[in-house]
Design a protein around this nucleic acid. Structure first.
Lengths: 254, 254
DNA sequence: CGGGCGCTTGACTGCCTTCAACCCCAGTGG
DNA sequence: CCACTGGGGTTGAAGGCAGTCAAGCGCCCG
C-alpha cells in the first residue's frame, strides 16, 4: 500500500534493492489528512516535501472573481512540491479531494538519498518531467477538444496513471471527484459536466456509481478521445507510442 | 545580444564572473534557423540541448484531426529540451515562429558546467520550474478566462519575460505571431482572435502594427486581465506578488 | 501582375453557460 | 422515528460567447 512511489518509479526504470530500501527509509511518519483540506496554500514557503501515499489531491488556483481552476490531479506516488529547493514560494495551492495519507520529507533526507543513489535521482527527475508533460497534455485537452472528448481523455489518463501504482482492478478505480471538481478542471460548468457524463454513460463508455469509475471498453474510449499515452513516458506504453506514429501521417495511406 | 540566457538567469539570482564566463563558454557555434521551421519533431530523440539566443519559437502538438495546439512560446534565453537527459523521446514538437539564432549544447558540456558551478545548476533548475509554472498559468488562462482577458494576459506575460532578457523598449516588443498562431495558442478561432484584437485596440490597451506590439497602459492592462506575475518567480516581482496577497481576501475589507 | 497569405467582416450556427427548480440521500438532531 | 438541512446531481429554458462558412481586402513577393 505504501509502495505507490516505488511502483511508479519502476514504471520508468528498474531499481535495485538498495534503491528501494533507501526510498522506504524516506518515509518517517504518515499523516492522515481529511478530504477537502489544503495541504499547502498559495504564497506559502514549504519546508518539507509532501508525498501522497494514498488518496487524491489537486493543484489549484483561485482567481480574484472566485473562479477556481484545477491544474493537476495528484494520485498515490505523486510529489506535491519537489520544487521546494529552488522557488521562493508556492504560486498555487494544493488541496485534498479525498482523505489522504501524506508524508513530509525533509530536504536533507532527499538530498541524502539522491547523493548516494543516482538511479533514484534520475527517477525523481523523471517524475518532475512527466508532471510537466501531463500539464502540456491538459493544455491540449482544454484548448483543442470538445467537452465529451475532454472528459473521456481525463478518464483514460487516470486509468494509466493509477494502473502504474496498482490502484486499478477490472478497469475500475476510485473516483472521489465531484462534478464541480471536473468542471473546474476542464473549464466547463458543472451543469454541462452532468450532461456530458450522462452522454458518456449512454454511449456505454463508462459507469460511475458510488464514487467508482468503470471504463467499459478502454480501447473504444481511447479511440473516441484520441488518447495517445506517449506523454506519460511509461515503459510499457513506449511501444504503443511508436505504433501510433502512423496515424499522424494517415493521409499518406490508401 | 547573445547574453539573453545570462540576463534571464540573473533575474533569478546573482551570478559570479566565473558563472558568467562558464555560461558564455557553452556557446560553440550559433545556427541560424529560418522562420516556420521545426527545430525538433515529435517522437525525435534529441542528442543535444537547444537554446534560443534570438527570435521566437513555440512548443506544439498536432492532433489527428489536424488541429494544432501551441503549448508554450520560447523567447531568447529559453531552453527547448533540458529534459534530454531523462526522457526517451519528445512528446511534442518545437518550431520557430520568426527567424531564430539557436545553439546546440552537448550533454557533456552542460554536465561539465553544472558539476563545477552550483549557482548555475540552481539557475537551470529554476528555468525548468518557471517553464512549468508558466504552463500552469496558461492552463488557468484557457480554462478560466474569456477571450479578451486571455489574450491580454498573454501580452502581459510576454512583456515581463521579454523585459527580463532586454527585448522591450517603451513597452513595445517584437510580435511575429500571426493571428492563427494566437488562435492555436488560446483555443480560439482565428476569426475570433481578429475581433478580440480589434476590441483591445478600441479600448486603447494596445497597438499592433508591423509585427510590433505596444502596450499603451501596462497597469490598466494588468488590471483588466487580473495579471499576477508571481508565477514567473522573478526577483523584482516578488515584492509585488506579496503586495497582491490582499486582493485574494478582499471580502474581508470594508 | 498574378498569387497567396494574413487579416477583416457579416451572417448564421452551435456549444456551452446561466438561472432556476427539483430530486436524492446522508448526516444531524429533536 | 422523523423532520430538517445541505451538498451533489439532474433537468429544462433561454441566452451568449465563440465557431464556422464565405467573401473580400491589402500587401508582400516572385
Amino acid at each position: 500500500m505504501q509502495d505507490a512511489l516505488i511502483r511508479k518509479l519502476e514504471s520508468f526504470e528498474d531499481l535495485t534493492d538498495g534503491d528501494r530500501a533507501a526510498l522506504r527509509a524516506l518515509v518517517p511518519r504518515v499523516r492522515q489528512v481529511p478530504a477537502r483540506t489544503d495541504l499547502i496554500e498559495e504564497g506559502h514557503v514549504p519546508e518539507r516535501i509532501h508525498l501522497i501515499l494514498d488518496g487524491y489531491a489537486c493543484r489549484y488556483k483561485v482567481l480574484p472573481d472566485g473562479q477556481r481552476q484545477i491544474m493537476a490531479y495528484l494520485v498515490p506516488g505523486d510529489f506535491c512540491d519537489l520544487n521546494v529547493f529552488i522557488l521562493d514560494q508556492m504560486d498555487h495551492a494544493i488541496g485534498t479531494i479525498s482523505p489522504c495519507q501524506v508524508v513530509e520529507i525533509s530536504r536533507n533526507a532527499i538530498e541524502e538519498v539522491t547523493a548516494h543513489y543516482p538511479q533514484v535521482t534520475r527517477a525523481l527527475w523523471w517524475c518532475a518531467l512527466v508532471d510537466e508533460a501531463i500539464l502540456r497534455e491538459w493544455l491540449v485537452n482544454i484548448g483543442s477538444r470538445q467537452a465529451h472528448q475532454r472528459i473521456a481523455h481525463l478518464f483514460c489518463e487516470l486509468l494509466l496513471r493509477l494502473e502504474a501504482v496498482g490502484r486499478v482492478s477490472d478497469n475500475s478505480y476510485a473516483f472521489p471527484f465531484t462534478q464541480t471538481d471536473i468542471a473546474d478542471t476542464m473549464g466547463l460548468s458543472d451543469v454541462h459536466v452532468s450532461r456530458t457524463l450522462r452522454e458518456l454513460r449512454r454511449l456505454q463508455f463508462i459507469t460511475l456509481k458510488r464514487r467508482v469509475l468503470t471504463i467499459l471498453d478502454v480501447e473504444q474510449l481511447k479511440a473516441y478521445c484520441g488518447f495517445n499515452p506517449n506523454y506519460l513516458h511509461l515503459r510499457n506504453t513506449r511501444w504503443s507510442a511508436r505504433r501510433q506514429v502512423p496515424w499522424l501521417s494517415s493521409s499518406h495511406g490508401a
